[in-house]
């Protein structure tokens, strides 16, 4: 019982760590590269404009897709590792 409980809480903290990491990337591409850090990236040209503009209109969306699939894949592995899958 105690084992089961510590196993479950280890699973949950692994999940929370994973979420935190993914959210950092999520914020970095959208609020970071596309908005707040755009002036810093202005020197990197992309197709007639700068990298920040590309992140705002395409890069962030592509990264979002990557994040969700990465999270789903990682969580499936965690489900198996901790024996908590369906």
């Amino acid at each position: 019982m105690a084992d089961e409980k510590s196993n479950a809480s280890a699973y949950w903290s692994a999940n929370v760590r994973l979420i935190t990491g993914c959210l950092i990337v999520w914020a970095l591409v959208s609020y970071g590269c596309a908005i707040l850090l755009r002036p810093l990236l202005a020197g990197i040209p992309v197709g007639g404009t700068d990298l920040g503009f590309w992140f705002a209109q395409q890069g962030s969306i592509l990264t979002f897709i990557g994040i969700i699939f990465f999270y789903a894949w990682k969580m499936n592995k965690l489900d198996k590792k901790f024996g908590l899958g369906e």
Binding site: I19, C22, L23, W26, S30, F64, I68, Y71
Partner: peptide, 8 residues
Amino acid sequence: GGYVILAM
């Protein structure tokens, strides 16, 4: 971006 938080 809302889908990222929805998914996680």
